[in-house]
Amino acid sequence: MSRQLQAAGVPLQINSLSVAYQKKPVLRNVSLEVTEGQLIGIIGPNGAGKSTLIKAALGLIPKLEGSVLVYGKPYNEQRKLIGYVPQRESVDWDFPTNALDVVMMGRYGRLGWFRRPGAKEKAIAMECLAKVGMAELADRQISQLSGGQQQRVFLARALAQDAKLYFMDEPFAGVDAATEKAIIMLLQELKGQGKTVIVVHHDLATVKEYFDSVMLLNIEVQAFGKTEDVFTRSNLQQTYGGRFAFLDRQEDEELTLLSGKGRG
């Protein structure tokens, strides 16, 4: 009982999670306990299972074994506490709808069956669009938005979910510097409100700057903890294997990469 109570304060607890596509394991024995109010980065090479981890945690793909608890309960009982930003390429942006409409989709879970979004949902969606600096583009057809703007729409939709725990699948992929800055400021704001954000991230150069904790993943968890403790050269070497070697070649470049001042 006390363990349950204890778990109730933990936004996300993953116990020995394994996932396989066909026969090949993509995640093996992943365990993780996340502290509330943190920005957490998931880092690893291509095919390391970063997106898979998020999708399995959300119950989007079946898991082989293991359990996922959100604030002490299975995720399907806690859906209203979870927000999700999928990869931008996962949808067809030529769909006949506008930015405001997509953001309103974030409210569908709370609306429940059959009910249509009304004035209240519209107001919330407008507010969320304003937060990502897109208020004046609310009526824009989504195919007319730039990549960065599309990413912001997805972010606004997640904000409209009004969740406590957010999963974001590469929100910084293919956006310009201005959008990246806007997104990270927003993430910091969420963190300020005591929300927990888990981000799949690619750019090693910004890890130290952005995240409180970091998980290095390559099928199995290579390291997980506070960024300053875990984001070390030896851990990265272990995670990326040979692929990290090219960074090793030029000591200077690697130092700038790791110090977070340069851009990968």
């Binding site: 119950g59 989007l60 979870i82 999928p86 997509v102 989709m105 569908y108 879970g109 069956w113 249509r116």
Partner: peptide, 22 residues
């Protein structure tokens, strides 16, 4: 007509719809 919202959501972004619990 009744399921317009749901059909729209699964046509645009089925992954997100699943995340919402539909």
């Amino acid at each position: 007509t009744l399921l317009f919202k749901e059909f729209k959501l699964i046509s645009f972004d089925p992954g997100f719809a699943r995340g919402l619990g539909f």
